[in-house]
Simulated assay, not measured.
Amino acid sequence: MEEAAVRLALTNGRTQPDVAGDLGVGLSTLGRWISRSRDRQAVASGGQAEADMAAGLKRLRRENEILRQEAAP
């Protein structure tokens, strides 16, 4: 129910108090669910950014090693 409530609160254009009332949950509960959902999304997107950064670093290290070998006498 939590995910559906968050989706409803964020996408239907109605106020959070209206959505909370329709669902029979407290406004603070709905707010907490929305906050948790945003935190999960931030962690998920942050994890992808770290993976991209690690892949880029690996590529640069490989290129650096190749350049060192080409420059060696």
Score class of each variant (00 low, 15 high):
Asn12Ser: 15
Ala51Ser: 13
Gly21Tyr: 00
Arg36Thr: 02
Trp33Thr: 09
Glu50Met: 12
Glu63Phe: 00
Arg62Asp: 00
Arg61Ala: 08
Glu63Ser: 05
Gly31Val: 04
Glu70Val: 10
Arg7Asn: 11
Leu27Ala: 12
Pro17Asn: 03
Arg59Gly: 00
Ala20Asn: 01
Arg7Tyr: 14
Gly13Trp: 07
Ala44Trp: 00
Leu27His: 10
Asp39Gln: 14
Glu63Arg: 05
Glu2His: 04
Ile66Leu: 15
Asp22Arg: 13
Ala55Asp: 04
Leu8Pro: 04
Gly26Met: 06
Ala5Leu: 13
Gln48Ser: 10
Ala51Leu: 15
Glu63Lys: 05
Ala42Lys: 11
Val25His: 00
Glu3Asn: 10
Ala49Cys: 05
Thr29Ile: 00
Trp33Phe: 05
Arg40Asp: 09
Arg7Gln: 14
Gln48Val: 14
Asp39Ala: 15
Ala72His: 04
Leu30Gln: 01
Asp39Cys: 07
Leu57Asp: 06
Arg61Trp: 04
Gly21Leu: 14
Asp18Ile: 12
Ser28Cys: 09
Arg40Ile: 03
Ala49His: 08
Ala54Leu: 09
Glu3Trp: 08
Val19Glu: 04
Val19Pro: 04
Asn64Ser: 09
Leu27Pro: 07
Arg40Phe: 02
Gln48Trp: 13
Gly13Met: 03
Val43Lys: 08
Val19Met: 02
Ser35Tyr: 10
Ala55His: 06
Ala4Ile: 14
Gly13Cys: 05
Gly47Ile: 06
Ala42Asn: 08
Met53Asn: 01
Leu27Tyr: 12
Asp52Cys: 04
Ser35Trp: 07
Leu67Lys: 06
Ile66Cys: 07
Ala44Lys: 10
Ala20Tyr: 01
Leu10Lys: 14
Gly13Gln: 06
